[in-house]
């Protein structure tokens, strides 16, 4: 350990504010972009599910006009 006590570790001989600001901003921004990306993916999945869910409904309805979507594989 390069420091004698927790207080010395936090103070870093006067350089503490600079060091800790850097680390704080680093983790703040990296955390923000990670969380935002995660939420975005969840949001997109949710959105797609709602769209396909409403389209899948006619399958349960009694027979009648039955439209089958032809979906060629695009991958």
């Amino acid at each position: 350990m390069a420091f004698d006590s927790l207080g010395a570790f936090i103070a870093m001989e006067g350089h503490g504010p600079y060091v800790w600001t850097c680390y704080f901003v680093f983790f703040l921004l990296m955390g923000a972009i990670s969380l935002w990306s995660l939420r975005q993916r969840r949001f997109v999945i949710e959105q797609q599910r709602r769209r396909t869910g409403s389209r899948a409904m006619p399958d349960n309805s009694p027979a009648g006009a039955n439209f089958t979507r032809i979906e060629p594989s695009q991958d």
Binding site: S34, Q40, V44, Q48, T52, E71, S73, Q74, D75
Partner: peptide
């Protein structure tokens, strides 16, 4: 990877595999 997956889901939303995947996840 995470952000690419999101982008793929948006772009390939009409394909069958995305629909199946989305249903399975939901």
């Amino acid at each position: 990877c995470l952000r690419m997956q999101t982008e793929i889901l948006v772009r390939e939303g009409r394909t069958r595999w995305v629909k199946e995947l989305v249903q399975a996840r939901g």
